[in-house]
Design a protein around this nucleic acid. Structure first.
Lengths: 342, 342
DNA sequence: GACTTTAATTAAAACGTTTTTATTGCCAGG
DNA sequence: CCTGGCAATAAAAACGTTTTAATTAAAGTC
């Protein structure tokens, strides 16, 4: 690896001049800059990022850490918590950070199950800020993060102590209800997420609001809950039909739950959309590839990632600005899993 | 941020002693070590990774860069190249690197479309090695990588100049044929990937071998090709039936192609497995959540990631060892998309 | 008791940058 | 012919570690 010293020698100037020239200081004569650039290119010189960071105190790296509500790994096969959530968001995050000159460091492992500590990302000092994506499990986490003074934005969950970008879960489920009502449905079941998730209460509220707005009664028996997996949806649906409920319309807190429910129904020879209409939430790859393609409310992951990135960059630049909460309006994506009901 | 100097003062020793103590040198007395550790903890000291890396010349970071064969982003909705491939592998990669004390830096962006240069990851000097996952598009890339002298392993493609970990595509498709034959099928269509992918030729060979072994003729008309997307599978299938081919069994080069094909068939009221049996390849989330659950040959992504990680760590430790190619045996995962044919 | 070993600690150099301050040479103004 | 001022460059300090070499203190050895 060639260093700045080599370049200096090659160009016949001092190392300070090299640094100045390469970093675009206008104090260096145009002609010497050209010489320096030529020398640098000839030696294929890249500044050592560690040395640079050491003095500038900037890493030009942002961290992404994933936290999920439940980490089910029991081998049902159909039980694997679908982590396309982060995967799909990552691209837009990366886009944003890349164009700002930042690299991405990711911690997807959830290996830091020791909840009393901050995730390693916060401690290693390798990143200038972190994007925390997913449901916050640990109550005390936001406070710990805030105290750590590391610029952080929460994506997909909320806390008053930090910057947050999130979708409105309430609006999402309300929209699902409205759509089904509009399509003529009057009996709408709802499989919610687990109580442990921040989102579930909001979704339930959205469900109620939707019903209310349509003048429909809230029927406790129509709502069930599940963890965020296909298997969860499968058993929840089973629970529903075993209770004697055979709804013609279903809303699922998340796409994979919807798919699990459909799986159970298909085993009883009930098919979508012939026998049941379903709308999910999230709009990931699963909804797109499902058969029938799943009508769902989009969590706007792409936008979420984009905004989060921008927000984090903003906070890094201005560490003391007041915290913000950005709530994205979800969007209905009509595909083929809902049919008009007469 | 507290530095080693602060710790030294707090513990009443020199900074060298602090460093030695914290890094477990046996030259320091047990009692002083305890004092140092206590001081470090009190000040919640974490060594500055940049300073450290500057002298040790180790970043303790490995990079993951994703390269895909085609980057179709036209908005068919069903066309988005499904990148669960990396997503699913990433977890095991991370597991491996984390336990070895390495962090992960990822470049998923494919923003470096300038093929004449190495991806930024190689140039920035922030990583100790890189995992290159996916199909290599650029012929000259392996050579450039080799010349860069940055420890690298190719995951999911092959080159004689580098370490590689891959699945045997040939064996995979052969297994698919064998399984279908075993289930009584004699007319087996095959939708292959695009010619631009290294894998396609191997898969085709596997297909031929399977047929041959079963004493079945190779019928050109039964094979089609597609890019790696649902939409690709959809149109390929359409092409097949428009040619008058109505196969009872289908092998797809990749799961999302299979799903696309099924989508087309369902539009013609042909259902799986009633009217057609299909087996895919890859075994990702899509296969698991499909309806019916897709019988597929697993690319062993988890194992792939694990081995790749281990291999890279090995190469970092021993840069001059001879290159290796590890070929993983794929595994048939029987679900519900194939039925016995009489 | 002088001398060598050994154990524990410290001093100092090095890593490769950026950045602030100092130096040089040159030119204009008086 | 000096003197300020300016433009361009260079010197030097600083960033926070690790690591090698040097120092000191204690303990053996004969």
């Amino acid at each position: 690896m060639s260093t700045i010293k080599n370049v200096a020698k090659e160009a016949g100037v001092s190392i300070s001049t090299v640094s100045l020239a390469l970093n675009g200081s206008k104090a260096v004569k145009e002609e010497t800059r050209r010489r320096v650039v030529a020398a640098a290119r000839k030696l294929s010189y890249t500044p050592n990022p560690n040395a640079r960071s050491l003095v500038t105190k900037k890493n030009l790296v942002i961290g992404v850490v994933r936290c999920t509500d439940d980490i089910s790994d029991s081998a049902y096969g159909f039980d694997s918590t679908v982590d396309t959530y982060l995967a799909e968001m990552l691209k837009s995050i990366e886009q944003g950070s890349f164009t700002a000159g930042y690299s991405l460091m990711v911690d997807w492992s959830e290996t830091y199950t020791d909840k009393s500590e901050l995730p390693p990302m916060f401690q290693q000092g390798k990143v200038d800020g972190v994007l925390m994506v997913g449901g916050i499990i640990n109550e005390k986490l936001p406070e710990m993060i805030a105290r750590s003074a590391i610029p952080t934005v929460l994506v997909g969950s909320r806390s008053a102590m930090l910057d947050c970008v999130d979708t409105s879960y309430r609006a999402a489920i309300r929209m699902a209800v409205e759509y089904l009502v509009e399509m003529g449905h009057r009996e709408i079941a709802f499989i919610n997420g687990p109580d442990t998730s921040q989102t579930s209460a909001q979704k339930l509220q959205g469900y109620r609001e939707g019903l209310q707005k349509a003048g429909l009664p809230f029927n406790e028996a129509l709502v069930s809950k599940s963890n965020f997996s296909g298997y969860g949806g499968y058993t929840a649906m089973r629970g529903l039909v075993e209770k004697g409920i055979g709804p013609k319309a279903l809303i699922a807190a998340v796409d994979c739950i919807a798919l699990g429910a459909l799986r159970y129904l298909s085993e009883r020879s009930l098919y979508c959309p012939r026998d049941i209409s379903v709308v999910g939430f999230e709009d990931g790859i699963l909804a797109e590839y499902a058969l029938p393609p799943l009508t769902t409310v989009s969590a706007q992951k792409h936008e979420l990632g984009k905004r989060a990135c921008k927000m984090l960059l903003g906070r890094i630049a201005e560490p003391d600005a007041p915290h913000q909460l950005v709530l994205l309006e979800p969007k209905l994506v009509v595909r083929e899993s809902v049919r008009r009901w007469e």
